[in-house]
Amino acid sequence: MTTLLTPLSTASQWGARLRDPRYLPVTGTLVALLLILVVGQLRYSEKRSFLSMKLFSNLLVDNSYLLVLAVGMTFVIITGGIDLSVGAVVALVGLTTAKLLIGGFPLWAVLAIGVLVGAAFGTLIGVMVQYFDVQPFIASLAAMFLARGLCNVVSVESLGIKHEGFAALAAWKLKFGEGRESWSINLSMLIAFAVLVVAFVILHHTRFGRTVYGLGSGAGGNAVALMGLRAASTRVWVYVISGTCAGISGILFALYTKSGFNLTGIGMELDAIAAVVIGGALLTGGGGFVLGSATGVLVYGLLQVVIAREGLQSWWTKVLIGVVLLGFVLLQRTLSARRSRAT
């Protein structure tokens, strides 16, 4: 009997979860994702099916760096903070990687330095926010200017990366399928996926992760401190994580473009923030999920695909993203209004 009933109850459990106020914004994101997929399937399936592994493979190839950024940003936004520096850090890491590889440094060291540069910027922001009471917006804005300035010190020209090992990493992929239906998994996708999984485990299965959520519950994380949890160090770490993710993302972007360029990633922080908000995070803090943010990235990428398929100009993407953003913010607003009325 019980074995027969189990699938049913898990199904209903999932249904209940989707309607839980905590998950409702993410449900909205999923609905949006499905909607785009369905519309895409109906409109663009003349020659071959729109829905295909190839679609998702391409989506992830183009957006793995954004996924990693969004994951890091999710940590920060859950605590009620913001990190504007990530786009500039991506550019700086890309340039550093290119410069060091040209300078003949060993590949492993270059990659490690790239990630560490990101972590260093995160630490800088975290310390300013936690120990000098600088607002996250301003602290990360300063870090952004700093990173942009350093970019220009490293090089104002686009640096192509010709390093063989690096090229091999960029080219490595697992191929599936044949001909036009073939799709592949490359290194960036695997790294992004690994970052996502690690972030999920940290956020949902460790005390640190739950403290991150607690920090966003209001009153400046006061409750967390009174509960005897490490409020101060957690807040610093959140920015370190975001910076580290920006570092990893910088390397992924370098792998994607096989170059470093000082004007890379202008406005990329907004893409990341937008993806996180679309993914159901509350900018006031306290709510948000890395899996939601990942869904947000997919929605973001799919919008671009749809716009390309429709033959619309690329600026439509920004307008659409703005509209979607507005929609999600309004959705969150009504949800939180309803919630505060309930209690």
Binding site: R22, R210, G214, G218, A223, V224, M227, G286
Partner: peptide
């Protein structure tokens, strides 16, 4: 006095 817990958890 105030419920010093995290409402979102």
């Amino acid at each position: 006095q105030e419920v010093n817990l995290c409402a979102n958890l």
